[in-house]
Measured scan of single mutants.
Amino acid sequence: MTEYKLVVVGAGGVGKSALTIQLIQNHFVDEYDPTIEDSYRKQVVIDGETCLLDILDTAGQEEYSAMRDQYMRTGEGFLCVFAINNTKSFEDIHHYREQIKRVKDSEDVPMVLVGNKCDLPSRTVDTKQAQDLARSYGIPFIETSAKTRQGVDDAFYTLVREIRKHKEKMSKDGKKKKKKSKTKCVIM
């Protein structure tokens, strides 16, 4: 069974824990209790493949930012979460993405942009803004509501699919490099 290491990042209060708990335990946590770091595991079937999701729910508070490099190193894919009623959390996505790329030393890291709290009427981040940002990053965008469960499975499952595509691409690139290195030079 394939294991996928997913990391949920975003500013404090955007609903990272609520999304994760909704996926794992099928219930909505409405009281806000700032996370330092929590880890969850769940076995699911995605596109006919049974897999184990190892999900790291991270601290959004700035005082825990020193811990970010460590979990970013171990993560295979990242859910970059903002709240649709919090423009600052949307603007912060850029910083999370840049930090992930720096730590992973790669421009090509599996990510999904997630606009959470889409059940709320007080939207300050337009869907088109988020779609445009995701398009500019070359990553999928999904709106979710941890409260109603809308888009929750889709967000995590899409990230797994992005990781699969990335692994497939990397193995193809690896095979191309191996083929090239088999060419021999004969000096007579």
Rank of each mutant, 00 (worst) to 15 (best):
G60Y: 07
H27I: 12
E62I: 14
G60D: 13
S39T: 07
L23N: 15
V29Q: 12
G60L: 06
E62V: 10
T50V: 15
I36L: 15
T58W: 14
E31V: 07
D54V: 03
V44Q: 10
P34D: 03
I46P: 04
A11F: 13
A18D: 04
D47C: 04
V29P: 08
R41I: 07
Y40W: 11
D30H: 11
I24E: 14
S39R: 01
S17R: 01
G12S: 10
G48A: 10
Y64E: 15
N26F: 15
E49L: 04
P34I: 09
H27G: 12
G48Q: 12
V44W: 12
A18P: 00
E63I: 05
Y64N: 15
P34T: 02
T50G: 10
V7E: 07
V9H: 07
L6H: 02
I36E: 02
G60V: 09
T58C: 12
D54A: 01
V14E: 12
D57M: 01
D57H: 02
G13I: 14
V44P: 04
Q43C: 04
S39Q: 07
I46S: 07
D38N: 07
I36A: 00
V8Q: 07
V8G: 04
L53H: 04
V7T: 10
A59N: 15
N26D: 07
L53V: 14
D57L: 02
Q43N: 07
L53G: 04
E49H: 10
L19V: 14
G48W: 05
D33Q: 13
I36S: 01
I55D: 00
E31F: 06
V29K: 15
L19P: 01
V44R: 05
G15R: 01
K16V: 01
I24D: 12
T20N: 15
H27S: 11
L23P: 02
Y32P: 02
S39V: 09
N26T: 07
L53M: 13
E31Q: 06
A11Y: 08
E63N: 07
D38L: 02
A59H: 15
Q43P: 06
E49Y: 07
D54H: 05
D57V: 03
L53N: 07
F28E: 00
E37Y: 02
K5C: 05
V9M: 15
A11N: 10
N26G: 09
E3R: 06
K42I: 10
E3K: 06
L56Q: 04
V14K: 08
V9K: 01
D38A: 03
L53A: 08
A18L: 00
C51S: 10
R41K: 10
K5Q: 10
E62W: 11
V45G: 10
E37V: 04
S17E: 00
A11R: 06
K16P: 00
G15A: 02
V14S: 12
T20D: 15
Q22W: 06
T35P: 00
D33T: 09
I46M: 10
L6Q: 00
Y40R: 04
G48D: 11
Q22P: 02
R41P: 13
V14C: 14
V29I: 12
Q43S: 05
R41L: 08
D30N: 13
I36K: 00
S39L: 11
Q61G: 15
T20L: 14
L6G: 03
Q61S: 14
G15H: 00
T58K: 03
T35Y: 03
G13H: 11
P34Y: 04
E3W: 05
D38E: 10
I55S: 08
Y64A: 15
S17D: 01
A18S: 09
G60A: 05
Y40T: 03
Q61V: 15
S17I: 06
K5L: 03
A59V: 14
V44T: 10
I24L: 13
G13Q: 13
I55R: 02
E63Q: 04
Q25P: 03
Y32G: 02
R41S: 07
